[in-house]
Amino acid sequence: MQDSNRPLDAEDGLPDAATASAPTDAVEAHSGQIDGPDLGNLPPHARTIRSYVMRAGRTTEAQAKALAELGPRFLMPYQEQLLDFPATFGRTAPVVLEIGFGMGDATAKIAEGQPDTDYIGCEVHEPGVGALLKQIGDRGLSNLRVIRHDAVMVLENMIPPGSLAGIHIFFPDPWHKKRHNKRRLIQSPLVAKLVTHLAPGGYLHCATDWEPYAQQMLEVLGAEPTLVNTAEGYAEKPAYRPLTKFENRGLKLGHGVWDLVFRKKA
C-alpha cells in the first residue's frame, strides 16, 4: 500500500506506525470516525458522526476513464431526496449498502456472486470509486451503484427507513492508538442510526483484522436492543464475503480476522 493512502495520525500529521505496518484492508478501506476529544468544545450540532477519513491518492488513467465512461450510468449523485430502489435498479430486489468499500474489489466480487441482490457502495476516495466503476465494466455488473459521498449523509437523506436487506462495513480504520479509539466508526450513535434503515430481519455485517476493535464491535452491537447476534460471539466468515489480497497476506502471517453478523429483530 502506498504511503499516501495510509491513515494519518490526527495529532501529529504523520502516518500512524501501527496502521502503516498492517498488511490488511484496514489500510486500504476508508472508515469512519466520531469526532474526538479535540472537538469537545464544539456545540452539540457540530459533533457529527463521519463515515470516512480523507486520504491522499492519485487517480490512474484507467480509473479516470471508468469515471468518465461509466460514471454517468453507475455513479449516483448525492441528493437530499429518498431513492426509489426499483427505479434505480430497474427491478424489485433486496438492497444492501456498503460503507467504505476502499478499492472495491470485494464489493464487485460480492455483487457478481449475488446477482439477485442489488448493492449500493458509498466511498469518498476518487481512486477507489474509479477502480470499482472499472470493475463494474469489466465484470458486466448491473446490480451495483456507487455514491461518492459521506455514507452518514447518504443514510439520512437518500436511504428510506426500514428499506435495506443488509449493511456491510468491512475493515474500517481500526485507529490503533488508545487516544484515537473514539474515532472508530462502530460506536453506539452510528449503530442506532444504521438499524433504522434496516428492514426487519435485515443484517449488519462487520469485519475487522484488529482484535481490540473486534471486541469493541461485539460489545457495541450486542448493546443495541434492536439487534440479535447470529452467532455465539464472532461469526464464521459468510461465503459471500471474499478474501481480499491484504486479508490473505495477513492470514499467512498468522493475523486473525473477525466477522460479526447481527440481525434486526422482526
Rank of each mutant, 00 (worst) to 15 (best):
D138I: 11
Y52I: 03
Q63L: 03
E224H: 12
D38Y: 08
P161R: 13
D3F: 06
P115V: 08
K178R: 15
V228R: 13
A87E: 09
N229M: 06
V146N: 01
P77R: 10
A192S: 15
G140C: 10
L251V: 09
L185A: 14
D84I: 11
G256I: 08
P94I: 01
R50N: 15
A93P: 05
M54S: 15
V53S: 09
P7T: 10
A111Q: 00
Y240F: 14
L190M: 07
D105G: 02
E236I: 05
H149Q: 15
L190Q: 00
V228P: 03
N5I: 13
L204Y: 07
L190C: 01
A62T: 14
G166H: 12
G202V: 07
A207H: 05
P37S: 13
H255W: 11
I186H: 06
A18C: 05
T244M: 05
A223I: 06
G104F: 00
Q216F: 01
I159H: 00
K109W: 03
L243F: 06
I186Y: 06
G250K: 04
G36R: 15
A108Q: 00
P189M: 06
V146S: 02
L75R: 14
M1T: 11
L67A: 07
R179E: 10
G36P: 04
Q2A: 15
H149P: 03
P44A: 12
V53E: 09
K265M: 11
A214E: 06
T107N: 00
V146E: 00
H149M: 05
T88D: 04
G121L: 00
L155E: 01
E69Y: 06
C122S: 02
L260P: 06
I159N: 01
Q63F: 01
D9S: 12
W210D: 10
G202Q: 10
Q79T: 08
K65N: 14
A223E: 15
F101H: 01
D38E: 13
R184G: 02
G137H: 04
A131L: 01
L243I: 15
L39F: 15
H30K: 08
V257Y: 01
I167M: 11
K252M: 07
F101K: 01
D3H: 07
M158V: 06
M54A: 15
G166A: 12
P43H: 05
